[in-house]
Amino acid sequence: IQIFEKGDFSGQMYETTEDCPSIMEQFHMREIHSCKVLEGVWIFYELPNYRGRQYLLDKKEYRKPIDWGAASPAVQSFRRI
């Protein structure tokens, strides 16, 4: 998965294949504004440590949070399923 600090795949980008319990600790990001799921299925969580509201992401590109069903870019953790 590739995660971006700004919408439309702009700003700082990080790519990982590992679960992330805290985007702040692992990537020094506060929010995720866009992402590209390159393979597999992932779950975004609103809070750290896989808690809070969940969003299921299939293999595709998400230009903004509304594309994965979120009203805001408040994603604090994610993991692959």
Rank of each mutant, 00 (worst) to 15 (best):
G7W: 07
F9M: 13
I1K: 01
N49M: 10
E15F: 06
Y55Q: 15
Q54M: 04
V75P: 15
G40A: 06
A70E: 09
Q76G: 06
F4R: 00
I81F: 15
L38A: 12
D8S: 14
V75K: 01
S77A: 09
V37L: 11
M13P: 12
L38H: 12
P21G: 10
E15R: 06
G7H: 11
Y45H: 04
P65G: 09
R51K: 10
E31V: 14
F27K: 08
V41T: 14
T17I: 12
T17S: 06
I23H: 03
F4N: 03
E46H: 06
S10I: 06
G40E: 11
L38P: 14
Y45Q: 00
I32A: 10
M13W: 06
K6Q: 06
G11V: 03
V75R: 01
W42A: 03
R53A: 07
E46P: 03
D19Y: 10
L38F: 08
M29H: 15
R63C: 05
K64W: 03
F78P: 00
E61A: 01
E15G: 07
D58P: 02
K59D: 04
I1D: 00
W68D: 05
L38V: 08
P48I: 03
S10F: 05
V37Q: 05
Y55K: 02
E25L: 02
G69K: 04
S10V: 09
S34L: 00
A71R: 10
Y14Q: 15
G69Q: 03
S10A: 07
F44G: 11
Y62W: 15
M13S: 08
R63D: 06
G7C: 02
F27V: 11
F9D: 02
G40T: 02
R51L: 08
Q2S: 12
P65Q: 12
K6T: 10
M29Q: 13
K6E: 10
R30N: 12
S34H: 01
D67K: 04
I23N: 07
I43N: 10
I81N: 15
P21V: 10
A70L: 15
D19F: 04
C20Q: 09
R80A: 02
A74L: 15
F9N: 13
N49I: 02
F27I: 14
K6P: 00
F27C: 05
F4S: 04
K64R: 04
W42K: 01
G52N: 00
I3R: 01
Y55L: 06
K36A: 11
M24N: 15
F44M: 13
E46V: 02
K59L: 04
Q12K: 06
F44Y: 05
Q26H: 05
I3P: 00
E31Q: 11
T17D: 06
R53H: 07
K6D: 11
Q2W: 10
H28C: 12
K60Y: 15
Q54I: 07
E39Q: 07
I23F: 10
L57Y: 01
G40R: 02
R63I: 15
L56F: 12
A74V: 14
K64I: 02
E15M: 03
C35F: 15
I81G: 09
Q76L: 04
Q2C: 12
N49V: 03
S34C: 06
V37F: 07
Q2M: 05
H33L: 08
S72W: 10
K36F: 14
M13A: 09
P65E: 09
Q12E: 06
I81Q: 13
N49Y: 07
I43Q: 13
E5Y: 14
L47S: 06
T17M: 06
Q12A: 08
H28P: 15
K6R: 07
Q54C: 10
V41F: 10
C35M: 14
N49T: 03
R79W: 02
V41K: 13
I3L: 08
E18R: 08
W42T: 01
T16S: 08
V41G: 14
E15K: 15
A71F: 09
C20V: 05
C20R: 03
K64A: 12
G11Q: 09
G52E: 00
R63G: 14
K64H: 02
I1W: 00
K59C: 05
C35L: 14
A74S: 05
K60H: 00
P48K: 10
E5F: 13
M13L: 10
G52M: 00
M13I: 13
K36Y: 13
K64C: 04
Q2P: 00
E15A: 09
T16E: 13
R53Q: 14
Y45G: 01
D67M: 12
G69P: 02
P21A: 07
F78L: 13
E61Q: 06
S72M: 04
C35G: 13
I81E: 11
Y14V: 09
L57F: 02
V41S: 08
H33V: 09
R51P: 00
K64T: 03
E31P: 06
E39K: 10
Y62A: 05
I81R: 05
L38D: 13
F44C: 12
D19I: 04
P48Q: 09
C35V: 11
F4I: 00
I23C: 07
V37T: 10
V75L: 07
G11M: 13
R79Q: 06
D8E: 06
E39V: 13
M13F: 07
M24Q: 05
D8P: 09
Q2A: 05
E5P: 09
G52P: 00
H28K: 14
G7A: 12
S34E: 01
S22P: 00
E5A: 08
Q12G: 12
F4C: 09
D19Q: 15
V75F: 15
I43D: 02
F9H: 13
F9L: 12
K60W: 04
W42D: 00
C20D: 01
F9Q: 12
Y45F: 07
P65A: 14
D8M: 14
R80V: 13
I66N: 07
R30S: 05
A71T: 06
L57D: 02
G11W: 03
Y14T: 14
S22K: 13
V37M: 13
D8G: 12
P73T: 05
P65V: 15
S22Y: 15
D19A: 09
I32V: 08
M13C: 09
M13R: 09
H33Q: 08
W42C: 03
Q76W: 01
I43A: 12
W68C: 08
R63Y: 03
S72R: 04
W42P: 00
D19G: 07
R53M: 13
H33S: 12
E18Q: 10
L38Y: 05
P48L: 02
